[in-house]
């Protein structure tokens, strides 16, 4: 796609081989995790005698159980759904907010623009784990009394609070992406008499799809794997807190944790594969939509 016509093939082989070598630990580590999820015992050394094929781990996980005997059946579908709600919610909020703010920081000149950028960066110096105390206070103050909306509110709050943590990073990223778009595209719209808002929506957004995807991907993953905010604020469980709470060095049947971990990875892998066409679809030279 990129420079196919002129690129020498030989080099690309060398590059692939190099990355492959660098990736070996990753490949080995994660392969063993997946293999172990089909075994009665964790496969960790290359000793085949520790592998005994079983589907029991996966069956248990689909029943929401992370124990060979006993344990409690957790509503695994519900938990997966909760995780999706949180992750998609965070991704949506972060993408929308940062696409708006990133544009104005890149394209509109106003006083305090630079300071705003620096403030955003500095905010990140404040670790989320400490911030959570303040966020908790606010939650406490705004917590609804009515039992009917408590669950809904806890989802809303987790999504917004967790999204806020991703905002500084995403706004910075988005600004960078808007910066790379040649100014001429925007001018053509403004000359036609469109407002900045229309220009942003009709011209700029389609042009920075890769940026939007990168931001959405990180936000999605942040929501998908968050533990601290979710455990503290969300009334229901998500996959991340479910796995975390059931991993205990002494009791846990690790192959089942491996199966749960693999299951947990699947939606994110699907998300990445379907979305990555967008990531690669760069600026193509024309104005769309």
């Amino acid at each position: 796609m990129k420079d196919v016509e002129t690129r020498p093939r030989r080099y690309s082989r060398v590059i692939i081989l190099t990355i492959l070598l660098a990736s070996l630990p990753l490949i080995v580590g994660f392969s063993l995790l997946v293999i172990s999820s089909f075994s009665t015992e964790m496969v960790t050394n290359l000793n085949p005698s520790s592998f005994h094929l079983t589907l029991e781990n996966w069956i248990s996980v689909f029943h929401g159980k992370l124990a060979t005997t006993g344990g409690i059946r957790a509503p695994i579908l519900r938990i997966t759904l909760n995780t999706l709600i949180v992750a998609l919610g965070v991704a949506g909020v972060v993408t929308a907010v940062s696409a708006l703010a990133g544009y104005s920081l890149s394209r509109v000149n106003f006083r305090g623009r630079k300071h705003m950028m620096i403030l955003l960066l500095v905010l990140h110096a404040f670790p989320g784990v400490a911030l959570i105390v303040g966020v908790y206070l606010l939650y406490r103050l705004t917590f609804p009394q009515s039992m009917d909306i408590v669950r809904l509110y806890s989802f809303m709050y987790v999504i917004f609070a967790r999204a806020a943590l991703e905002i500084p990073m995403s706004v910075w990223l988005m600004k960078g992406f808007f910066d790379t778009i040649p100014w001429e595209f925007e001018w053509s719209g403004i000359i036609d008499g469109a407002s900045r808002i229309t220009v942003w929506r009709k011209i700029m957004l389609p042009l920075i799809k890769p940026g939007i995807l990168a931001v959405a991907l990180f936000a999605f993953l942040a929501g998908w794997q968050d533990i601290i905010y979710v455990r503290t604020f969300l009334i229901d469980q998500t996959l991340a807190t479910f796995i975390e709470a059931n991993i205990e060095a002494e009791f846990s049947h690790m192959p089942m944790i491996a199966a749960a971990g693999t299951l947990y990875l699947l939606p994110t892998i699907i998300f990445f594969i379907t979305a990555q066409q967008l990531l690669l679809q760069g600026y193509s030279g024309g104005i769309k939509g």
């Binding site: 124990a67 344990g71 409690i72 455990r231 975390e244 709470a245 059931n246 991993i247 205990e248 009791f251």
Partner: peptide, 10 residues
Amino acid sequence: THYVASFQDA
């Protein structure tokens, strides 16, 4: 009924 492995987490 909420039951997890790690009592510290609970």
